[in-house]
Amino acid sequence: MGYCSPAMSSAPRPAVSVVAPCYNEQDALPEFLRRVGAVLDGIGGTSEMVLVDDGSRDRTWDVLAEAAGRDSRIVAVRLMRNHGHQLALTAGLSVCRGERILIIDADLQDPPELLPDMMALVDQGADVVYGQRRQREGESLFKRATAAAFYRLIARLTDVQIPPDAGDFRLVTRRVLDLLLAMPERHRFIRGMVAWIGGRQVPLIYDRHARVAGESKYPIAKMVRFAADAITSFSVVPLMASMTIGWIMAALGFGFFIYSIVGWWGGHTLPGWTSLMAAVGLLGGMQFLMLGIIGAYLGRLYDQSKGRPLFMIRDIVGGRNGGAE
């Protein structure tokens, strides 16, 4: 799945790559480039920034292309259309060449200034250093509450230990990245996939800031889809729940049957329509719910079976080898 031009493949690898997906981030990018550039200057050595325009409708691509022309460390990648955050991030990870890779968003909610601390932990033997949020500034109570509930729910549903309160902000080694890119999933939950790889994964506690500019790209509908992708990617508990619910409903049905027999034997007239319609409605609702859950898993299998590329790259501009592709 990796993408690499002939010029890129023959060049020595930079020590670190910074990979950021960008969607309508024209206002945030100048400050992002300044701060990330300053951090890379401070740590020294060879480095690159791989910034992916995920089908933005504003001037994001123009800003990226201009920045790539000024700074040879910047590689600007433009996708053919909007693929979503996780696939845009996957595109950037497939292009980057660094021995260590920092995954970060362009909104600067996660501070790039933590990179030296992350590098030090990798020097001490960590395979992955993930940022774990202590506070989340600039987010509503609803978003904080739903995020906390999501992490606790997925911890109960999966066997993989996915760190709570940790997003995609992390530093990974090339070995971990190569394993991640070898995974063919279309519906990607990258923080869970990295956790599944294992190795020595170390948290770095930090306070998450408010967006430097623009607005959140994760409205409620996208958050729900993202949570569904995460759960169906790492758990079959929803499928197994149908068996549990089936046993419960069978037990309730058997109980009502015994109750009816006892009432008939005692000569009592049992009211029928209300209890009958309630039972039919409950059973019908549970059946449709279970069919919906099964459909979600089957839909993922159908998407995966088509074998289409995860993303389509339109342009790559910049890098130490220059030029556009």
Rank of each mutant, 00 (worst) to 15 (best):
residue 1 M to H: 03
residue 7 A to E: 14
residue 10 S to H: 09
residue 12 P to V: 12
residue 16 V to C: 04
residue 18 V to C: 08
residue 18 V to D: 02
residue 19 V to I: 04
residue 23 Y to A: 10
residue 26 Q to S: 15
residue 27 D to C: 11
residue 40 L to G: 02
residue 41 D to W: 10
residue 42 G to N: 07
residue 45 G to L: 02
residue 47 S to G: 08
residue 51 L to W: 02
residue 58 D to R: 03
residue 61 W to F: 08
residue 61 W to T: 01
residue 65 A to G: 00
residue 72 S to G: 08
residue 75 V to I: 15
residue 76 A to C: 08
residue 77 V to C: 09
residue 80 M to G: 06
residue 80 M to P: 01
residue 80 M to Y: 04
residue 86 Q to F: 06
residue 91 A to T: 12
residue 91 A to R: 07
residue 93 L to E: 09
residue 96 C to H: 00
residue 104 I to F: 02
residue 104 I to Q: 00
residue 107 D to Q: 08
residue 111 P to G: 05
residue 120 A to E: 12
residue 121 L to I: 08
residue 121 L to S: 01
residue 121 L to C: 04
residue 121 L to P: 07
residue 122 V to L: 15
residue 123 D to Q: 12
residue 123 D to H: 07
residue 131 G to K: 08
residue 139 E to F: 03
residue 142 F to L: 12
residue 150 F to W: 10
residue 156 R to C: 05
residue 157 L to Q: 05
residue 157 L to F: 02
residue 158 T to R: 09
residue 159 D to L: 10
residue 165 D to A: 14
residue 168 D to H: 03
residue 175 R to W: 05
residue 179 L to P: 00
residue 181 L to W: 02
residue 183 M to R: 08
residue 187 H to S: 10
residue 196 W to N: 06
residue 199 G to W: 10
residue 199 G to K: 02
residue 206 Y to K: 06
residue 209 H to L: 13
residue 210 A to D: 03
residue 210 A to E: 14
residue 210 A to R: 10
residue 210 A to C: 04
residue 213 A to C: 06
residue 213 A to Q: 05
residue 214 G to W: 13
residue 216 S to T: 13
residue 223 M to H: 15
residue 225 R to H: 05
residue 227 A to W: 09
residue 229 D to Q: 12
residue 233 S to W: 07
residue 235 S to R: 01
residue 237 V to H: 03
residue 242 S to F: 08
residue 248 I to R: 13
residue 249 M to H: 07
residue 250 A to P: 07
residue 253 G to Q: 11
residue 257 F to Y: 02
residue 258 I to C: 04
residue 261 I to C: 12
residue 261 I to M: 14
residue 261 I to H: 10
residue 264 W to K: 06
residue 264 W to A: 11
residue 267 G to H: 04
residue 272 G to C: 08
residue 274 T to Q: 02
residue 275 S to W: 10
residue 276 L to Q: 09
residue 278 A to S: 01
residue 281 G to K: 09
residue 284 G to D: 12
residue 285 G to Q: 13
residue 285 G to S: 10
residue 286 M to S: 14
residue 286 M to T: 13
residue 286 M to P: 07
residue 293 I to E: 00
residue 299 G to R: 11
residue 303 D to M: 03
residue 314 R to C: 04
residue 316 I to E: 07
residue 317 V to I: 14
residue 317 V to E: 09
residue 318 G to I: 08
residue 320 R to I: 11
residue 322 G to K: 06
residue 324 A to N: 12
residue 325 E to D: 11
